[in-house]
Design a binder for these strands. Sequence first.
DNA 1: GAGTGGTCTAGACCACAGA
DNA 2: CTGTGGTCTAGACCACTCG
Lengths: 257, 257
Amino acid sequence: MTPAPSTYREVAALIRDRIKRGEYPRGSALPLQEDLADEFGVTQSMVSRAIKTLAAEGVVQPIRGRRTIVTAIPPIHRNPSIRYSRAARERAGGKGAYDAEIRSLGLTPGVELRVERVIPPANVAEILGVSADEVSTVVRARVMTASDGETTTTTQLADSYIPLEIAADTVLEQDDEGVGGMVSRMAELGYAQVRVTESITGRPATAEEARALGISEDQHVYDVTHVGWSAEGRAVEVALHVMPQHMWILDSEFPCD
Amino acid sequence: MTPAPSTYREVAALIRDRIKRGEYPRGSALPLQEDLADEFGVTQSMVSRAIKTLAAEGVVQPIRGRRTIVTAIPPIHRNPSIRYSRAARERAGGKGAYDAEIRSLGLTPGVELRVERVIPPANVAEILGVSADEVSTVVRARVMTASDGETTTTTQLADSYIPLEIAADTVLEQDDEGVGGMVSRMAELGYAQVRVTESITGRPATAEEARALGISEDQHVYDVTHVGWSAEGRAVEVALHVMPQHMWILDSEFPCD
DNA sequence: GAGTGGTCTAGACCACAGA
DNA sequence: CTGTGGTCTAGACCACTCG
């Protein structure tokens, strides 16, 4: 006999345990909120609230009009230290770090790219030292996905901004950046990046991000601002990454003298 | 005239805007939920839900039995790349990276340390290669605070585990680790760290963490697993950091060849 | 249109802090 | 004990998806 829960946190804990024990397998639908409410002797509102907290944890994915799904894909590791070594890039067969990360989980990566000349966000303009009031950058906006054969999950939004002065009428405005990725192309254009800095914050997804990522507004994302610096100390690329927190583990590595 | 909100997200947006505009200053108390409810023409339950979403963002800090406070301290930067360079350590006057970070915001840092021999958590034991079933580590559990003169905020919980074999009956079991911090002391004992790795995940605070950090269970934390490696490739220290997400910005830096 | 999750009201009561 | 935030119920209705 299940102990009767009396708070939504207790309800959430019960459901969380069942998921952990495999009673509700990854990718499957939870029972109806109505049925869970009956089972637990509480109202549907309360089950809804419980499920909302599980959604915030990234354990489940409630879908309005359909059902609540148990999150399917295990967390993906991201390691920018390795990402920017030439050796690691070559090891990945010129396909980029993301490909390798996804394939190592037995999933199929996908990327959708949109290239456009745009007015940059204010913070990006400031870092790049370009105007925030006019079309001064090229953005390469990527939507990155992972597929397990049945369902496709959006794992990351990555918007990469390059000053128009650098990118205009170059391969950087093309849809295919070729082997070695953008960093290699920029090096060939005389804007080699010798150093990258990253700044990570965490926050709930905006309504727009939630839609694009297929998550709820209660779920949190990492907001990574990535800056590539040339040897002269000039910022030549700013990339804004938005990644659902439950989908990623952020790894890094530093020497220590 | 304020537009009448009809959903808790709209209520949250209104309150968020007022905070941004400075109508409810940092560190001050919000009006009563009851009064806000009357003003907006909704129920107190609904205002409570709205405030809960603002708490999840880290914008406010509801305190049961008292009032809801607008979050006072701006985010603190953390940069482990700098943290582990000898030059940066010396620049900080031997007081450690945390001190410098807090003082640069005009705040006063504080640390409370408890040193104990303990059974390590399973994942720590695995990394260190010690037993998870017996007392095999020394933990240096730190509670780190920042004070603006009026109020003191807990900013981080940092539990550092060292194999008993290394730490037993050494200065590492003392309360004061001296100039240069633990890393320097371990180097003197023959366990110099040449490399550190970090793994970051985000999740809601546990009930216990929420209590210790003075935040709500709806707020998210960064969970940083930090490992120090010796030249022989042995893990000699594992530190678990728990940091409220709204209090921190995680910076890093990498060379790029 | 039926099914399912999301939210609202109105009112009640609980939990905790502080005088 | 009072004040304040947190949550619950019961029922209703809305929003969205799918056949």
